[in-house]
Design a protein around this nucleic acid. Sequence first.
DNA 1: ATGAATAGCGAAAATGATTTTCAATAACCC
DNA 2: GGGTTATTGAAAATCATTTTCGCTATTCAT
Lengths: 171, 171
Amino acid sequence: MASITNFFDGEKKTMEHHPALASLNQEPDLLKTVLNKEGFRFTSQRQKILDLFQATPLGHHLNAEEIHQQLLDQGEKISFSTIYRALHVMVRLGLLQELELAEGRKYYELNTPFMEQHHHLVCVHCGEVLEFEDTKMTQVGHGESATRGFSLLNCQFTVYGICPSCQSLLG
Amino acid sequence: MASITNFFDGEKKTMEHHPALASLNQEPDLLKTVLNKEGFRFTSQRQKILDLFQATPLGHHLNAEEIHQQLLDQGEKISFSTIYRALHVMVRLGLLQELELAEGRKYYELNTPFMEQHHHLVCVHCGEVLEFEDTKMTQVGHGESATRGFSLLNCQFTVYGICPSCQSLLG
DNA sequence: ATGAATAGCGAAAATGATTTTCAATAACCC
DNA sequence: GGGTTATTGAAAATCATTTTCGCTATTCAT
Ligand SMILES: [Mn+2]
Ligand SMILES: [Mn+2]
Ligand SMILES: [Zn+2]
Ligand SMILES: [Zn+2]
């Protein structure tokens, strides 16, 4: 079965804080280390995609299309197949989070430490996305999965509504 | 922009308890009333789809494919375009909830009164879905959308993990 | 370093859920 | 009943994502 959170269920990183994340900025070839540890190879394409996420403002979420376009804009040509493959690998390694915000496409952002997990408020009209934190969410997620004996991978709380400016537009 | 929760943002029912839901079973042609009130027409196809949801055990979620198959099984031929159109209309009327449980397809279930809103725990390996209730979720959803001036349509809390039996299978 | 083994790349084709098109039909309203 | 038009089914179109395949680049042992 395909999955929202990974493509190789058996060995997915759990919802812990990935030790790589803290130092991804400092260590220049940490990506190589993380990849090789799991048998993946380091490539310039993967580095460029990760760099792009690190250059993306907090609270912004990227999809494959945007990644492709932004890399084009900075003169890097890369194929969609490579982008999709890199995204899967980086989700699998716990470097990225995959999000189902709305409409038929997936969005990605740098993964954040477990206790700083955040959630999303989406305007279904204009697509604006606001982030918020609430530890009650993660507590409930932990509690429920523990109760049922599930090993927790990820919780997503998504609130859909209409933002103030769209409300006035729509009367 | 397309939307998880509806296809015609401006007039979507809000997250209140839809008055139709309580009595959908009793009133035989309540569906007609609800449809006509919004300018839609009553059709036997829409009735059959709603009937199917009412005959579906609680906690089970249907996608377009399953709806098509189940209707075929009971001798009803219906096209996918009609199924998709009916699902959109019924979400729009607040009769159904649209869910993003996992993998690239949408699931539907009868909409439930606001305060009985439930959430989902999904095994990413076998696809099993468990439901749970927690009023903290809806409170946080209300609170966040109020704070930001959003009009709330819907909240979904989805917890992804691996169920006990898949854990033992996977070692 | 060098070379063998193979993971990863790009381009193009394939997939698969959903949407759209369009002519025929059936609901609605007078 | 009859005109208007929303809805239907079948087929074609969309569109994000995945797969295929021949070629290249990374890894790792020599
Ligand atoms: Mn985010
Ligand atoms: Mn449910
Ligand atoms: Zn908006
Ligand atoms: Zn399972």
